[in-house]
Design a protein around this nucleic acid. Structure first.
Length: 280
DNA sequence: GGCTAGG
DNA sequence: CCTAGCCAACGCTCC
DNA sequence: GGAGCG
């Protein structure tokens, strides 16, 4: 099996045994989703979550480009606490498929891009439901949206493919991570004060109760967030899916869209766009 | 999954 | 030859 | 200063 000139080895090996998804299926998924996903990957160092033995076995994270990676994989030197490291960029479909053949299931990206790695160009509010129900999470998402709208910020919504949702929005990459995080942290603290039964900023799991954990910690240098349209290593193969706000009321979970349903949703959305675009 | 170090 | 080991690491907070 | 957390 060959896609984009990349030989997909062991195409019949099961990556998601429960959902009966093979490595060939994984490669076809990313081949098809690439057109939607690549813009979100462009020029961002990635953290790869790999499962060579399938998701029912322990996987591992990888950030550094290995010496044996082919030349067509773009590399980017980054500063680390220890000194420096060479990380990976996924700017082309061919790189995407090469990495998928290494059994990458999930792509996580930095919140900053090549040329301005110290300056985030994106902010993420990660809403984790703790033990609470999804309706509560939806209410929380609307409150965060409203809070940001009050600051003239038009946040977008995404399911994570797991339990929660992300609100995210672009910013000009001109202020360092610490400054950006301090500002949104202050906003979040006000929100927690207004809705102390709904939100928490507590890192310790035991202290969160059933409240929505507002995780802002990923808005930091070298931290990552799940890339839109990435698969997640859970039983039903959830997909991180950007949504319209109008879709929130009908949303039932953070893993509503999966390997099996995402393309149907994208086709429906595309058809709606065609119908409402003048000149057709 | 693919490579390397060590037996 | 075969197999075991490796493949991330920052910022915050509680203790 | 180290462990939990993502």
């Amino acid at each position: 099996m060959k896609i984009e000139g990349i030989e997909i080895t062991h195409p019949d090996a099961l990556v998601f045994p429960g959902a009966r998804i093979t490595k060939g299926g994984l490669a076809r998924y990313y081949d098809r989703i690439a057109i939607y996903m690549l813009p979100y990957l462009k020029d961002r160092p990635v953290s790869l979550q790999r499962f060579p033995k399938g998701i029912d076995h322990p996987g591992f994270f990888q950030k550094h480009a290995q010496d044996y990676f082919p030349d067509f994989i773009d590399r980017i030197p980054v500063k680390t606490k220890a000194g420096s490291a060479v990380e990976i960029l996924v700017n082309h479909k061919k790189s995407l498929l090469y990495l998928v053949n290494l059994s990458v299931v999930t792509f996580h990206t930095w919140l900053s891009r090549k040329g301005a790695l110290e300056y985030p160009d994106k902010v993420i509010f990660d809403l984790d439901p703790s033990n609470g129900d999804f309706d509560t999470l939806k209410r929380g998402a609307l409150l965060v949206r409203e809070m940001l709208a009050g600051k003239d910020i038009d946040a977008r919504l995404m399911t994570t493919g797991k339990k929660g949702v992300h609100l995210y929005y672009p910013i000009c990459p001109e202020r360092p991570f610490d400054e950006v995080r301090a500002r949104i942290r202050a906003w979040a603290e006000v929100l927690v004060e207004k809705h102390p039964d709904l939100f928490t900023l507590e890192i310790r799991k035991k202290k969160r109760g059933n409240k929505i954990f507002l995780d802002l910690l990923r808005n930091a240098y070298a931290q990552t967030g799940v890339c839109p349209y990435s698969l997640r290593p859970n039983h039903n193969a959830g997909v991180a899916t950007p949504l319209e706000w109008s879709e929130l009321s009908r949303l039932n979970s953070g893993d509503q869209y999966t390997y099996h349903t995402i393309f149907k949703r994208l086709e429906t959305k595309e058809a709606q766009r065609r119908d409402t675009t003048p000149g057709n």
